[in-house]
C-alpha cells in the first residue's frame, strides 16, 4: 500500500482491496469521511498502552472444539444451497471470471 497520512488516504486502492466500486464523487466524500473519522481515532494515541496486552475477545473462552462429525440435520440440500444464487448451472454456482483479468 502506498504511504499516506490521514490527509492523503489511498481511497481508490482501498476500494479495490474491498472490492467496492466507487465513483469519483464517492471518492471525494469518502476521503472527507475518513479524515473526520481518523481525527477521532487519533485521540487514542495519547493513551499509554506500553504495558498493556491486547484483548481480542472478552469471554475468556479458549480453544472451543467440536467433534469432527457430519450432522446431516445441519446440512443444506443442493436445492437449498442454490436457492438464493443469482445464477446456477447444473447444480453449480456460476461465478464471475477472476483469472486472466487485468
Amino acid at each position: 500500500m502506498p504511504k499516506s497520512s490521514s490527509n492523503s488516504i489511498p481511497v481508490q486502492h482501498i476500494a479495490k482491496l474491498s472490492n467496492i466500486p466507487i465513483t469519483s464523487d464517492e471518492e471525494e466524500a469518502l476521503t472527507h469521511a475518513f479524515v473526520d473519522t481518523l481525527k477521532v481515532v487519533e485521540e487514542l494515541k495519547s493513551v499509554d498502552v506500553s504495558k498493556v496486552q491486547p484483548t481480542f475477545q472478552v469471554t475468556g473462552l479458549e480453544n472451543v472444539w467440536r467433534e469432527d462429525m457430519i450432522d446431516e440435520k445441519k446440512m443444506f440440500t443442493q436445492a437449498e444451497a442454490l436457492f438464493n444464487a443469482k445464477q446456477s448451472y447444473d447444480g453449480y454456482f456460476v461465478v464471475p471470471q477472476v483469472i486472466d483479468q487485468d
Binding site: 488516504i9 481511497v11 482501498i14 476500494a15 482491496l17 474491498s18 472490492n19 467496492i20 466500486p21 466507487i22 464517492e26 466524500a29 469518502l30 469521511a33 475518513f34 473519522t37
Partner: peptide, 17 residues
C-alpha cells in the same frame, strides 16, 4: 457489492485500511 449504501461502504473501506 455495488449496492452497499454509503455508510456500509465507509465502514468496510475504513476497516480495510
Amino acid at each position: 457489492r455495488s449496492l452497499f449504501g454509503a455508510e456500509a461502504k465507509r465502514r468496510i473501506m475504513l476497516g480495510t485500511f
